[in-house]
Simulated assay, not measured.
Amino acid sequence: MASATSFYDFKPLNKTGAEVPLEDYKGKVVLVVNTASKCSFTPQFAGLEKLWKSVSEKHPDNFVILGFPCNQFGGQDPGSNDEIQEFCQVNYGVTFPVMGKVDVNGDDASPLFQWLKAEKPGLMGLKRVKWNFEKFLVGKDGAVKGRWASTTKPESLESVILAELAAKQ
């Protein structure tokens, strides 16, 4: 989607294969994370859920986390969309939206992730996701405000998210 100019131009698929217009999140701060169920970073689901609840308590209806399962890194999310959903809920009590499985790199990369990487390249300008649980913060205006590596604990992003929520558009 080369013509995309903001986050709101995309319609990724949810766990049932239905399009989710990201325009529905207009005016909200969104944390986009590529996730995996069998990765050393998988316990970050607990941190993401804690962050989701903490920020949502202070700013109901103004913040969302969108998880995008990905099996591209060591085959660490081989399950079906239903199996992934169940894993997230049973093991980590996840209540934020976990979307349908996507590729984040390569020829079949999700258009959303192609755009996110182009808008906020990684270290040394690399336009690829290095591993599971990379995080992209999208502001209320639909622009990418930040990008963090897998090693960044979700809870450490709360102050950045709160600052973005407080920012004037």
Rank of each mutant, 00 (worst) to 15 (best):
T151R: 10
W131E: 07
D141M: 03
A109G: 03
A143D: 14
V138I: 14
A143W: 02
E134P: 11
K135G: 04
W131I: 12
V144Y: 09
A149L: 13
V129W: 03
S159K: 12
G146V: 05
L123A: 12
V104L: 00
K140H: 15
L157Y: 10
W131Q: 07
W115V: 01
D107K: 15
A118F: 13
V104R: 13
E119T: 08
D141K: 04
L137W: 03
K127F: 02
T151G: 14
A149N: 10
E158Q: 12
G146L: 02
I161C: 05
K127E: 15
K153A: 15
G139H: 09
K153C: 15
L123D: 09
K145C: 04
V160S: 12
G106F: 12
L126M: 15
S159W: 10
E119P: 01
E119W: 02
K145F: 07
M124I: 14
S110W: 07
N105R: 11
L137N: 04
T152Q: 14
K135D: 00
A118Y: 09
L123M: 12
F133G: 02
G139S: 07
G122P: 08
T152N: 04
K120T: 07
E134Q: 14
A118G: 13
S159Y: 06
L112S: 08
L112N: 05
V129Q: 03
N105K: 02
L137A: 06
W115R: 00
L112D: 00
V104G: 04
A143L: 13
S150I: 10
V129D: 08
V138H: 00
P111D: 15
M124Y: 05
L126E: 01
V138P: 05
L157W: 07
A118M: 09
P121N: 00
R128D: 14
P154I: 04
V129E: 06
N105F: 03
E155F: 13
E158V: 14
Q114K: 13
F133R: 00
A118K: 10
V104N: 06
G142P: 05
A109W: 05
N132A: 06
L126G: 04
K130E: 12
A143Y: 10
L116K: 08
L112W: 05
G139E: 01
A143Q: 15
L112T: 09
K145T: 00
P154S: 12
L157G: 04
V144L: 03
M124E: 13
L137Q: 04
D108L: 15
A118T: 15
F136G: 03
L123K: 12
L123G: 00
V138F: 08
P111K: 10
L137K: 12
K153Y: 14
T151Y: 11
V104M: 02
D107C: 08
G106K: 00
K117C: 03
M124S: 10
V144E: 11
G146I: 00
W131V: 09
G125M: 03
S159A: 08
L157E: 08
K120P: 02
K117T: 00
S150N: 12
L112G: 02
V104Q: 03
V138N: 01
E119L: 04
M124V: 10
A109I: 14
L112V: 11
E158S: 14
